[in-house]
Simulated assay, not measured.
Amino acid sequence: MTGPALRYRDALTVSAALFLAPASIAGQADAADCALERHGEGRVAAVVDARGFRLEDGREIRLAGIERPGTDTANGRAALSAIITGRDVTLHGENDTPDRYGRQSAIVFVAGSEQPVQSELLRRGEALVSSDIADKNCAAALSAAEGVARNAKLGIWAETTAIKNAESPGDILAAIGHFMVVEGRVLSVRQAGAITYLNFGRNWTRDFAATISRRIIPAFESAGLGPKSLENRLIRVRGVVSSRGGPRIEVLRVGQIEVLGGK
C-alpha cells in the first residue's frame, strides 16, 4: 500500500490512538460543553454511513452537529467505524425524538472517552460542523474542533476544493443536494418578498447567493449579523446546495454564517 491510501491508513491509526488516550484539556472542554441530557446507551452493531450507525437493539443513530461533504463517504465511514464499531456508547442531546426515518439524532460518547465522537471526526478532518446544534457552548466546541483540522489541513481540508469559491458558481452547482462550505465577499444584499438574498455576484440568476427568511432575521440582528451589515464583507456560508437559477444555500441558523474579515 502506497501513496494516499497509506497516508490515510496511518492517519486513522494515529487518530484512533489519540482518541483512546487520556483526554487533553481541549477534550475535557468538549465533554463539559457537549454533555447534554442523556438519552440512552447501547453497543454499536454496525456503521451505516459516514455519520450514522445501528445499535444492537436495532436503533439507528445519527451523529448530530456534523455533516460529511460531497458524495465520497467511504473515508468518512471508515473513520467512524474505527472509532465506534463494537463499542458501548452513550447518547446525549436536547431530546430523543426520532426523525421521519426513525433515526435518533445525538451527541455520542464512546464509553471511557472524555470527548464526543463528533469532535474526534472534526479534528481528523473527516466531517464539517453542520450548525444544527442549538446549545451554543456545544456548537462552539464543535466549531473549534473543526478549526484544528482546517488549520492543520487534515483530512478533507488537505484538498484545495474543501471550501468552494463563491465566484465559481459552476463548482458549487456540481454539489447540488450536498452539504458544502462556500467562501466569498457579499456584493449586495437585496430583499424580495419574505426572502433576503446575500448576493456574491452581479448576475442574480446565475451567481451564488445565500438566502435568509424574514422570520429568522431577528436572530441574526441579535447576534450582530444583520443582513445589511454583511454587505461587502468576506464570509463563510455552510449548508445544503440547491439550484434556483444559480446555486443557493438556505440559511436557517445564525451558525451557518461566519464573518472572516472586515470591509
Rank of each mutant, 00 (worst) to 15 (best):
A134D: 15
S81Q: 11
R77S: 10
E94R: 08
G40Y: 08
G52M: 06
A144N: 15
A111Q: 14
V108D: 02
L128G: 02
T71K: 11
L80G: 02
L80E: 00
G125M: 02
S113V: 06
I133E: 04
A35M: 04
A35T: 06
S81P: 02
T71A: 11
D132S: 11
A82T: 15
A74P: 01
G102T: 05
I107Q: 10
L142W: 09
G70C: 10
L142K: 12
E41F: 01
L63R: 15
T85H: 01
H92L: 14
I83C: 03
R38I: 10
S130I: 00
D72S: 10
E41A: 07
G93N: 09
A82H: 04
R43C: 00
R77Q: 03
L91V: 05
R100W: 05
R87Y: 03
E114M: 15
S143D: 15
G40R: 14
G65P: 02
D135H: 12
I83Y: 06
S130H: 06
I107P: 00
L128C: 07
G40D: 07
R124F: 15
L80S: 03
N95Q: 03
G76S: 13
V129R: 15
G65N: 12
F109Q: 14
V117A: 07
L63I: 10
E126P: 00
T73D: 11
T90N: 12
H92Q: 10
G65Q: 13
A144W: 14
I66C: 07
G102R: 11
P69E: 15
V129I: 01
R59M: 00
D135V: 03
V110G: 01
Q115R: 13
E114D: 07
T97Y: 01
I66W: 03
T85N: 05
I83M: 15
D99L: 02
L122R: 08
